[in-house]
Simulated scan of single mutants.
Amino acid sequence: MTRVPVLPTTVVGSYPVPEWMERLKTDYFRGRMSRAQLLDVHEMAIKAALHDQRQAGIDIVSDGELRRDNDIDYFLARIPGVEIKDTAKDFYFDYYEASLSEPLPEAEGTPLQLADDYAFTAAHTAAPVKFSFTGPFSLAHRVTEDVYRSRGDLVLAIARVLNREARALAARGAELLQIDEPFLAGYPEAVDLAVEAINIVTAEVPVTWALHVCYGNRYARPLWQGHYDFLFPAVLEARVDQLVLEFARKGYQDLPVLRKSGWDRDIGLGVIDVKSGEIETPDLVADRIRRALDLVPASRLIINPDCGLRNLPGSVARAKLSAMSEGAALVRGELSLPTETDLSADAESDAKENSHAVHR
């Protein structure tokens, strides 16, 4: 397993799409650009995003999700059986109208080809890579259908598709996979179904698994409000190693809820507000981490923004990531702990780690 510093820094997934790239992607959907040209644009942008992350001091990088037009379409458009009648878009970020006229075929194979996407990214960085994909609960909520007995049956069918993709990702060398469920906070009554689907996705895939749950981030606006207590106790049954949550925008009052509810695995701690253009200082980031250390041992904290960076200008995103890395380094220097850890946590040793010895 890849070694990373204690309090490793990472991103949630997406990276800013520059205006010129927005125009080119929209040109593609309006039929003014070839697919081969679009692929070249994606690859160039991914390599630039990897460079930016490493320059900012990020320990675990992502591809910036720059091949994806939004959090949904890249996946639904590739799932056999999903019908998209109009593939043109006025703006690349718009959602397709997706539908089903019959149940998804239970075919083998990996139609989403996510392992190829991971392999390209891994070939262009020496850093550990987090690879994220949208979860089955959120994907199902963008599909119109009346062929399943319940929406839950569709969620589970999509989960089986994603499990095959996850197996292929692991076979290509992926070590850290993240399931994003941006719609879940809007349907708190369905958390049991979402956890059942997550466990289908992660079944027999021996990697470190993260689950990201936020309150929405479309056009840098939250879609819902609330607290993370809705996840419990159901999420305790999820076969994942990390919960990646937003705290910088919402505040840290939910951290005691996680502890009280019995979450004893890793926490991806949101310390950067991605819905604000104001750039945090390293000292502010460090203070947010120290507050979390009052409740969570350092060995179980991963430091990340609240959510994806897609809606921020590139210069702002780079400055925020640099501040996040510098703030994590400040706290790391105050800890009486080993300087490195595995990407996967050891739950038994974590339970003994409460004497993290932060020198204030």
Results as ranks from 00 to 15, higher is better:
residue 9 T to M: 06
residue 10 T to H: 06
residue 11 V to L: 11
residue 13 G to R: 01
residue 16 P to A: 06
residue 18 P to D: 00
residue 21 M to C: 00
residue 22 E to Q: 11
residue 23 R to G: 06
residue 24 L to Q: 12
residue 24 L to E: 15
residue 24 L to V: 03
residue 25 K to S: 09
residue 28 Y to W: 08
residue 31 G to F: 04
residue 32 R to A: 05
residue 33 M to L: 15
residue 33 M to A: 12
residue 34 S to P: 00
residue 35 R to M: 07
residue 35 R to Q: 04
residue 35 R to S: 08
residue 36 A to E: 15
residue 36 A to H: 10
residue 38 L to R: 07
residue 39 L to E: 08
residue 41 V to I: 06
residue 41 V to D: 11
residue 43 E to L: 10
residue 43 E to P: 00
residue 44 M to C: 06
residue 48 A to Y: 05
residue 52 D to L: 00
residue 54 R to G: 02
residue 54 R to I: 01
residue 55 Q to Y: 04
residue 56 A to P: 02
residue 57 G to P: 03
residue 57 G to F: 08
residue 58 I to S: 01
residue 58 I to P: 00
residue 59 D to E: 03
residue 59 D to F: 07
residue 60 I to T: 09
residue 61 V to H: 12
residue 62 S to F: 02
residue 62 S to H: 05
residue 63 D to I: 06
residue 64 G to N: 13
residue 66 L to D: 02
residue 66 L to F: 09
residue 66 L to V: 10
residue 67 R to Y: 09
residue 68 R to I: 00
residue 68 R to F: 03
residue 68 R to S: 07
residue 72 I to T: 09
residue 72 I to P: 02
residue 73 D to P: 10
residue 73 D to W: 04
residue 74 Y to M: 07
residue 76 L to M: 05
residue 76 L to H: 11
residue 76 L to K: 06
residue 77 A to S: 14
residue 78 R to E: 11
residue 79 I to P: 14
residue 80 P to H: 12
residue 80 P to A: 00
residue 84 I to Y: 08
residue 86 D to V: 13
residue 86 D to S: 11
residue 86 D to K: 14
residue 87 T to A: 14
residue 87 T to C: 07
residue 88 A to Q: 13
residue 91 F to A: 13
residue 92 Y to V: 11
residue 93 F to L: 14
residue 98 A to I: 00
residue 98 A to Q: 06
residue 99 S to Y: 12
residue 100 L to H: 06
residue 101 S to E: 15
residue 101 S to W: 13
residue 102 E to S: 14
residue 104 L to A: 02
residue 105 P to M: 05
